[in-house]
Write a protein that binds this DNA or RNA. Structure first.
Lengths: 178, 178
DNA sequence: GTCATCATGTAAACCGTTACATGATTGT
DNA sequence: ACAATCATGTAACGGTTTACATGATGAC
């Protein structure tokens, strides 16, 4: 019962959308969940093997010679629902940008401004990605579309907040230089 | 030259504010950097020992029998400045809340709403903490105050964005129930 | 035929948390 | 005396990334 890792949730979840190979799971996680989740190769394959041994997923090789697609079993779908209902393990915060700015006096206003500009640019890029994903989901709605848009919206809000903060902070830092 | 871990930055940074013991470093990180950084015991003590061996910090036991305070050496201050100037290692995103909501169809609108309400409550608590820290910094300004307020502002922006998102998403999810 | 991409896996290294263990100091 | 807190460390474990290794498939 002591599930610590969320990898299982991500893998089962990916397969709940549609059956796919381990390689495709990794791609799906990188591309679709990329803005709020990440998994590496080294996690996905062992997890898939374990899930298969436990009967939560099953190979579904419909006439392939190499590679196989996996799909959720009924037990796997129940497992996913159960995992989703468990309390969310909180990941400790680790924000390298803020860590640097907190000790900004050791760095000076100009170097700090550069750090902030980089954060702003990341937020801009993120906002563009969000817009693209939103357009794609709205153009081609899946049965999950409403939920996906909730996560996209979270990304949009976060990115816009970061933009506003960056703008404000650049002003503050500029005042420190004078 | 291959510094991967940011623990060293956090520890040197804490000591740059004022000399203190390892125990106090851990407290300072938990209390002051807590909203954007975390370190555990098991990291701090070995890091301090290594930094001492490398000559970046030095014990400064002014008449103590047990425990010792550490302070930065000149080399340590340079080391901190150098580390702060290095590119920020990006931590892969891991947002358990969004991971759940993305697969929300497996969970249903009501359970998702509960997840969102928990996120909203965390944001509210965070906003209260930010306000308290801001008040404290403004009441008793340190030479680092301007930089600290930049990080507090980041927390405030992020928390307010999360509140707005939660509000919006609760409406969306309520519409799914009908 | 060769290149890009699909596909699967393992091993080592690294990072970080947790639990355990121990003892000093200070306030009541 | 006793409790709370200060203080320091280590060992084991678990999770994650990275690098390495290998080969099939399909497009050109």
């Amino acid at each position: 019962m002591s599930r610590q890792s969320q990898t299982e949730v991500a893998v089962l979840g990916a397969l709940s959308v549609q059956p796919m190979s381990g390689y495709a799971v990794r791609q799906a996680i990188a591309e679709t969940l990329g803005h709020f989740w990440s998994e590496s190769f080294g996690q996905i394959y062992p997890t898939l093997a374990r899930l298969e041994a436990e009967g939560f997923v099953t190979p579904d090789s419909a006439g392939r010679t190499s590679g196989s697609t996996y799909r959720l079993t009924a037990a796997g779908r129940r497992r996913l629902a159960a995992l989703l209902r468990e309390p969310i393990p909180s990941t400790p915060p680790r924000n390298g940008t803020l860590l640097r700015l907190f000790f900004g006096a050791q760095l000076g206003p100009e170097a700090c401004a550069e750090v902030v500009r980089e954060a702003r640019d990341r937020a801009l890029a993120s906002l563009a990605t969000m817009t693209a994903i939103r357009a794609e989901v709205e153009r081609d709605p899946d049965r999950n579309a409403a939920y996906w848009l909730v996560t996209v919206s979270a990304g949009e809000h976060a990115a816009r907040a970061q933009l506003a903060w960056a703008q404000e902070s650049l002003t503050t830092l500029a005042d420190l230089t004078r």
